[in-house]
Computed example of a mutant assay.
Amino acid sequence: MAGIVNYVKESFGELKNNVSWPSWAEAQSLTVLVAVFSILFSLAIWGVDTVFSKVVSYYFQLIN
């Protein structure tokens, strides 16, 4: 148990002293950027899924 407590203490020390955190404005702009790309990527996947679904449906209609 002492090992876990020591690990957590050292982790917080690393985060506090050695990590260079972005400014609030930069963090907000990067969050918006990630959200926009996530939406675009999900729309692209939805489009490909829809096309493949139509192709598979058409294929199964041909073989019946």
Results as ranks from 00 to 15, higher is better:
1 M>N: 04
1 M>V: 03
2 A>M: 00
3 G>N: 14
5 V>P: 00
5 V>K: 11
6 N>H: 12
7 Y>S: 08
8 V>I: 15
8 V>Q: 13
9 K>Q: 13
9 K>H: 05
9 K>I: 12
10 E>W: 05
11 S>N: 11
12 F>K: 12
13 G>F: 02
13 G>H: 08
13 G>M: 05
15 L>S: 10
15 L>P: 03
17 N>F: 05
18 N>M: 07
18 N>H: 08
18 N>I: 02
18 N>A: 04
19 V>L: 11
19 V>F: 03
20 S>P: 00
21 W>N: 07
22 P>V: 03
22 P>L: 08
23 S>V: 05
24 W>F: 06
25 A>W: 06
26 E>V: 03
26 E>R: 06
27 A>R: 07
28 Q>P: 01
28 Q>N: 00
29 S>L: 02
30 L>P: 00
32 V>G: 07
32 V>I: 13
33 L>S: 13
33 L>F: 07
34 V>T: 04
35 A>Y: 01
37 F>G: 03
38 S>F: 02
38 S>D: 00
39 I>N: 01
41 F>W: 00
42 S>A: 14
42 S>E: 03
43 L>E: 04
44 A>Q: 03
45 I>L: 12
46 W>G: 05
46 W>V: 01
50 T>G: 09
50 T>P: 00
51 V>C: 08
54 K>S: 14
54 K>R: 15
54 K>E: 12
54 K>W: 14
57 S>I: 15
58 Y>L: 13
59 Y>C: 13
59 Y>D: 13
59 Y>N: 11
60 F>W: 14
60 F>I: 15
60 F>T: 15
61 Q>A: 15
62 L>W: 10
62 L>H: 11
63 I>S: 12
64 N>D: 09
